[in-house]
Structures are given as structure tokens and as C-alpha cells.
Design a protein around this nucleic acid. Structure first.
Lengths: 200, 200
DNA sequence: CGGTTCCCTTGTCAAGTGACCAGTAGAGTG
DNA sequence: CACTCTACTGGTCACTTGACAAGGGAACCG
């Protein structure tokens, strides 16, 4: 393997480990040593590739939110009402499937979103702002909101309702006895969410 | 003040500080020294009254979930369909108002629910199990779920949709420019949630 | 009123924490 | 084949962490 490839592969392993660690334990509670151990490298290497824990967190957030954006389906322009409803349902279902496979994105949002600090502002500007504008735009899922003032409420309700069951999967298993990440359960949640937000 | 009163008052100050700290930063990232400082006492006193950080966390969880249970309205028995719908809407609205005033309960749940450890199991057995059984019981909010298998999905969708906007209030302010905890916004969210889960 | 109890403070401990730095080995380059 | 560059290692730094222990001092009780 060439040096550049080696470098990129190592960085990728560290970022992957960081995504998992930050999602599981939050920013503060995750240690660079733990992340290094998950990635199979030494702690010094983490601060070598990513100057600070903060920068590593931004790299991890960029990766997980990038995956989210790449997963969501295109939204048709100038469609009929029925088409817009179908598109909204498809987008909701796609988000539910992503949240089931990657609850990390929810944890990053909740972990950063509760503090008024630099990390939160960076997340909003870099990762959230574009999605929010798109989701609450006319003609999209935002159409569930009968008027403009309800857009933020629909946005947060959608994310919360679609993500929580997967974000607390271990708790859900103990509480309900069933695994929410099982494919049948994910499908059921997607059905439920689509029907809830875009009823017939 | 008598010694017993003094003791109880001090313990209460510590628990209140712990609720805030654990909700803001999670269990791991909260330090007993920070909690002590918030409560205006020394760190040693925290481990004196509550033997361990874990025990303090349980005391904090007991308090915040106790407040939640005490807030929700009674549910009428043997009611008509219209009455059940009205009761479900009232319960949803009550929960939204509580989540706005006390987002801590959501943070405790998410913080503990993502790990399969003792704290999670304790929270499920002590605080969550009773609420879950009641919510998903026949005739309550569970009636939004057309069949029994959807009950867990309705439960988590309800909690997530009702809580998230308040749990990430700082983020919401930056993202939308509006404060979700303003009374008008809380009312709007309650309206939206009631209409979403119990449509006309 | 004298002795006991028990809140509470202060100080200490080992086990982490993120950042930094000198040194190394091996791929890339002339 | 030298030589440089750089990904990477191991060790160290000041600092924070939860728990503990010894002691003080005021409320309590006989």
C-alpha cells in the first residue's frame, strides 16, 4: 500500500471508531485513548492526524451526516399533490431505515444540540442548516405542516419520532422484549411513521 | 433549622443540581465536583450523602420521573370513543408541557437507554416499565396504534416527537431563530402533537 | 450539662484525561 | 544508492476524576 493510501486508511479507521465512540458515550465521555484502541492505533496517532479531539469530532460528524444526505432520495419538482405525498412518504421511510442503521446521527445531534457552544453552532451551520431548509421547504415533508409556523415542529417531531426507538435500542429490547433493529420492526416503524405524518 | 431538616434540604439541593448536570452532560461527563459546586457544597459531601455517583444518579432519576408521573392527568375508565380520544389528546398535551419544562427526563432516558448496563436496566425496571405498560394499555394513547404490535412504535414516536425540540432547545434557537420553550411555541407543539397522534 | 451523634470540610489517593515531543523505520525521491 | 519526508511509537506533562479518611463542631439526648 502506498503511503497516501495507508494514511487515508488509518484516518478512516480512526474516524469510524470516533463515530461509534462519540455516539455511544457523547463527546466529553469519549476518550481519545478509547477511540485509538477501537481503531487499533496508539493515542498519539489520533492527535497526530486530527490536531485536537474537537477536530476529530467534526470529522466524525461530517462523515455521519454526509452518509445521511447521500441516503435520502431525490425529491421531485413540480409534482401533483398525490406525487408529493408519495415522495414525502418515501423520504420518511428512507430516513427511518437510515436511523435504524445509523442511530449515531441522532446521538450527535442530541449530544451537541443541548449546549450553546462552538460544537453546536458548527453542527447547525455545517450539517443541520441545509437539511432543515430542504425538509421544511414548500412541497416536501414540510407539506404536512398546514402552515409555515409549524415547520420547525414537524421537523423535530419527525426526527424524534423516527430516531428514538433506534437510539435507545438496548433499552427498547429490555422494555418491550423485541429488537427494534430487526428488519421486520424497522419496516413496521417505517410504515407507522409514513402513516402518521402522511395519512391517507 | 433542625438537623434532619438541614440534612434533607442539603440532599435536595444536591439532587436538584445532579438532575441538571446529568441532563446537560450525561452521566460520565458530569463530575461530582461540578454537581457539588452547583449545589453550593463540597465534593466530599456528595459522596457522604450518596455513597457513589451511581446512587446519586438513581436518586436524580427517581426525582425527575416521579415529577413526570405526578404531572400526567388521570385516565378515565370505560369511556366512549370520543372521550378516549379527548383523554389521549389531554395526556399528549400534558406530556408536551412537561417535556418543555423538564427536558431532563428525555436526556436521562437517551443517556441511559443506549447502553446495555446496570443503569439502563435499573431505569427500565424502576421508572420506564410502569409508564410503558400504562401508555400502551388498551384505551389510552395506545389506541392510536391500530394493533397491538404497533404499541412500542407509538410509544417511542410519541416520546421522541414530543421531547426532541425541547431537548435540543439551544440548537433549535440557532437553527430556527425561535425559542421552542416560549409559551406560544410550547402550545403550538402541543397542538401539533395532539393533531398528529389523534387526528379528527 | 456532659457526652454522643452526625453533618460537613479538608486533604489525599490512584486512575484516568488531552496534548505534546523526541525518536524510529520505511516508503518515496533524486 | 543515499537522502528526505512522514506516518507512527512510546513516554511525559499538568490536570481532573471518584472515592476515601481524619477531624471539627454544632445539634441532640440522657
Amino acid at each position: 500500500m502506498s503511503r497516501a493510501e495507508q494514511r487515508d486508511a488509518t484516518r478512516q479507521r480512526i474516524v469510524d471508531a470516533a463515530v461509534t465512540a462519540f455516539a455511544e458515550q457523547g463527546f466529553q465521555a469519549s476518550s481519545t485513548r478509547d477511540i485509538a484502541a477501537r481503531a487499533g492505533v496508539t493515542q498519539g496517532l489520533v492527535t497526530y492526524h486530527f490536531d485536537s479531539k474537537d477536530a476529530l469530532w467534526r470529522a466524525a460528524a461530517t462523515q455521519i451526516f454526509g452518509q445521511l444526505v447521500g441516503t435520502l432520495p431525490e425529491r421531485p419538482r413540480r409534482a401533483s399533490k398525490a406525487e408529493r405525498h408519495a415522495a414525502a412518504r418515501a423520504e420518511i421511510r428512507a430516513y427511518v431505515h437510515f436511523a435504524a442503521a445509523h442511530p449515531e446521527v441522532f446521538h450527535f445531534m442530541v449530544d451537541a444540540g443541548r449546549h450553546d457552544d462552538d460544537r453546536m453552532r458548527w453542527l447547525v451551520e455545517t450539517c443541520l442548516e441545509p437539511r432543515f431548509s430542504e425538509i421544511t421547504a414548500e412541497g416536501g415533508i414540510g407539506s404536512v405542516a398546514s402552515n409555515r409556523a409549524l415547520a420547525p415542529h414537524a421537523y423535530y417531531a419527525l426526527l424524534g419520532a423516527g430516531s428514538l426507538i433506534f437510539a435507545v435500542a438496548p433499552e427498547c429490547r429490555v422494555l418491550t422484549g423485541a429488537d427494534p433493529t430487526a428488519s421486520a420492526a424497522v419496516e413496521r416503524h417505517a410504515d407507522f411513521m409514513a402513516q402518521l405524518f402522511v395519512p391517507d
